[in-house]
Amino acid sequence: MKSCIVVDDSRVIRMVARKILEELGFEVIEAEDGQMALDACKKSMPDGVLLDWNMPVMDGLQFLKELRKLPNGGDPKVVFCTTENDLNHIQEAISAGADEYIMKPFDSEIVSSKFAQVGLL
């Protein structure tokens, strides 16, 4: 079973994302911020990351940069899932190593489509 970590400071978003991902056959781990997610990745590298941008402690972009420095940190497919929808944010995320980008709000169709595009489904 493939694993995915959902990184978002909103409990509701994590809950919705977990439901969608579990229906797609993923084992789901949750993290409230980038630091918690980074700690989880150091213990066990996931196959995928669904990542919010704006979070306390460590934001999504900083998490992504730190993740990519870890041993095997280039392996997970990272899909940003955020309200930041301007071209500069998208380009910055892709430059930092994001594989794909989803705008909030999202639904199961969008998540499954993006996860299929990056090769997780």
Results as ranks from 00 to 15, higher is better:
K2T: 08
C4Y: 04
C4S: 10
V6P: 11
D8F: 11
D9P: 07
S10V: 12
S10P: 05
R11H: 11
R11D: 10
I13A: 10
V16P: 01
A17S: 11
R18E: 14
I20Q: 03
L21I: 09
G25V: 14
E27M: 15
V28I: 13
V28W: 10
G34Y: 06
Q35E: 15
L38H: 04
K43V: 12
M45D: 02
P46T: 07
D47N: 14
V49D: 06
L50W: 04
N54A: 07
M58R: 02
L64I: 09
L67Y: 13
L67I: 12
L70V: 12
G73I: 10
P76E: 02
K77N: 05
V78G: 03
V79L: 12
C81V: 12
T82S: 09
T82G: 05
T82C: 02
T83W: 02
E84V: 00
E84W: 01
N85Y: 01
H89R: 00
E92Y: 00
A93C: 06
I94P: 00
S95E: 12
S95L: 05
G97R: 03
G97F: 09
D99F: 06
E100F: 05
Y101T: 05
I102W: 03
I102V: 15
M103A: 14
K104Y: 05
P105L: 03
V111D: 02
K114N: 03
F115E: 02
A116F: 02
A116C: 04
Q117A: 10
V118Q: 01
G119A: 03
L121F: 07
